[in-house]
Amino acid sequence: MKLLIIEDEHELSKSIVTYLSSEKYLCEQAFTFSEAMEKIELYDYDCILLDLMLPGGNGLDILREIKRQNNPAGVIIVSAKDSLEDKVNGLRTGADDYLPKPFHLPELSMRIYALIRRKQFTSANTLESNGIRIDLLGQSVSINATPVALTHTEYELLLFLIGNKNKVVSKSALAEHLSGDMADMLDSHDFVYAHIKNLKAKLTEAGCRNCIKNVYGAGYKWIE
C-alpha cells in the first residue's frame, strides 16, 4: 500500500510515517504545495493524507487536481479547521474522509484502513484475527462459527483494536473514537475500562483468551 502524506509540519508528518510504516504501508512525504503537485503527477498512491493549509497554496486545489486526473487514490483531509462548513466543503470537493486536528494516530490508521478497504472492491467484507471472524456488512462477530453477541460500542471497540493490531491504543484515543466530542468534554475516560472489561469477558467466554492486553492502564493492545 502506498501512501502520500501532504503535511507541512515536519514533526507531525514524521510521527505519521513512524506509526504507519510498521503497518505494511509505504509512506512518502510532501511538505509544500508544489512538492505535492509534482508527486501526484508522477506516482500513483492508494491513499493521500492532505493538509489544507500548505506553504505555497491551498490543499483543496491539490484535491481538485487529483479529481481532474481521475486519480483513484482515496483522500483523507487532515486539517486544523473543524467547522461543519469546512468538512462539507472538503467532502464536496471529493475527499473521502475528513479528520480534524488534533487527532490520535490509531484513529488516523483506522480511517486509512477503512478507506483502503472500501476502495478495494475485491476484498472480502470479513475480517479475521485470532479465530475471530467479523462480518463487516452485517456487523456481526463469531468465534469458531459460534456467534458472539456484542453491543454496538463493544463491536466498535473490537474493530478499532483489530484495526490497530499489535499497537498500543491509548484510552483517550478509544474514548474519542467511541463518543467523539462527548468524551472530549469529560475529564475521565473510565467508561472505556468498563466497555473493555465487558468485551474481554465475552471474548474469553467464547474461547478467545488474552487477545486484549492492558498496557499499564494507559492503553490496550490487540495481540495477534
Binding site: 514533526e11 507531525l12 486544523a80 486536528k101 488534533p102 490520535h104 490509531p106 491509548s170 484515543a173
Partner: peptide, 15 residues
C-alpha cells in the same frame, strides 16, 4: 491545533 496534533502524535508513538 497543529502543535497539539504533534504533541498527541508523539504520545501515541511513545506508548
Amino acid at each position: 491545533q497543529t502543535p497539539l496534533a504533534v504533541f498527541q502524535s508523539k504520545l501515541d508513538l511513545l506508548l
